[in-house]
């Protein structure tokens, strides 16, 4: 038995030794099986690769989609932040202008935000977020750096209603800066003002700047109102018809200053 096993081992070693010597031979025995096995291997390998590719692509796509969503969200946030910063920048510019203007007009003023507008095209008022608790009273002037906005016509504890200078029932004592011709600025149509009761003999030209006279005890003296856009001197009568375009863009009003104590400014 033991001898038989030893003989088998010896034969095995001899065969292995012989086959290892003929490894490079074309007629090796392993080559016979390859044509039968390889197609299956190929098919299975390709299938596995395909599934693996599909799987990894799927996951890649899912990851890419998630990444895309994340990037899109980040981009949206960045755009929103950018917009917010731009808005802050513009807000800052407007406040700086108001601050500069506040220093210039020598009156005590309080800044207010416009929170509502009159829905009717016939009446021109705005609502601001300052009221009697902030020392705002009826009759106080409302201005911005561009010029006169209007005056407070009613005030509650935290909010006030401001009649714009372009309203048909609004008026302010004014004069032409160049020639000191006096008149009354009254609201009119299409956002323009009529400069009434200007004597015919006074020199008023298109392009002249109209400012507050301070004589109405509402608006401080010397505030810009607008620019003369039309002058008609009728053949008869003692007054001329003057139209003024206000400097203030009322559609874009966002912050205003309420003049708490109108001190007459000396020009």
């Amino acid at each position: 038995m033991i001898v038989g096993v030893i003989v088998l081992i010896a034969i095995n070693i001899i065969i292995l030794s012989a086959s290892s010597r003929s490894y490079s031979s074309y007629y090796e025995p392993g080559r016979i099986a390859i044509p039968f096995i390889a197609p299956f291997q190929k098919a299975v390998t390709r299938s596995v690769r395909f599934v693996r590719g599909l799987w990894s692509n799927y996951f890649y796509l899912v990851t890419a989609a998630k990444e895309n969503e994340r990037i899109r969200e980040a981009l949206n946030q960045a755009v929103e932040e950018n917009n917010h910063l731009l808005e802050l920048k513009l807000f800052n510019i407007r406040l700086r202008e108001l601050l500069e203007f506040q220093k210039a007009i020598t009156s005590r003023v309080i800044a207010a935000e416009v929170i509502g507008k009159d829905p009717s095209p016939w009446f021109k008022t705005i609502i601001i977020d300052k009221g009697t608790d902030d020392r705002v009273r009826k009759g106080m002037a409302v201005v911005i750096s561009d010029g006169v906005v209007g005056q407070v016509i009613s005030a509650s504890s935290h909010y006030s209603k401001v009649l714009l200078i372009t309203a048909h029932n609004s008026s302010a004592d004014a004069l032409v800066q160049r020639t000191r011709a006096r008149g009354i600025i009254q609201g009119g149509a299409t956002g323009r003002c009529a400069f009434k009761y200007v004597l015919r003999k006074h020199d008023v030209q298109v392009g002249d700047r109209v400012i507050t006279s301070g004589l109405d005890d509402v608006f401080p003296k010397g505030l810009s109102i607008g620019q003369v856009s039309r002058v008609i001197k009728p053949d008869a009568g003692i007054f001329q018809e003057v139209t003024v375009i206000p400097y203030v863009e009322f559609e874009k009003l966002e912050e205003v200053l309420v003049v708490l104590n109108p001190l007459k400014k000396q020009l």
Binding site: W122, H168, N169, G187, A189, T190
Partner: peptide, 18 residues
């Protein structure tokens, strides 16, 4: 009604075309 109210309170301020 609004125009009537405006005309009563401040006559001749609203141009017809407007």
């Amino acid at each position: 009604i609004f125009i009537a109210a405006i005309t009563i309170s401040s006559p001749l301020t609203l141009p017809f075309s407007q």
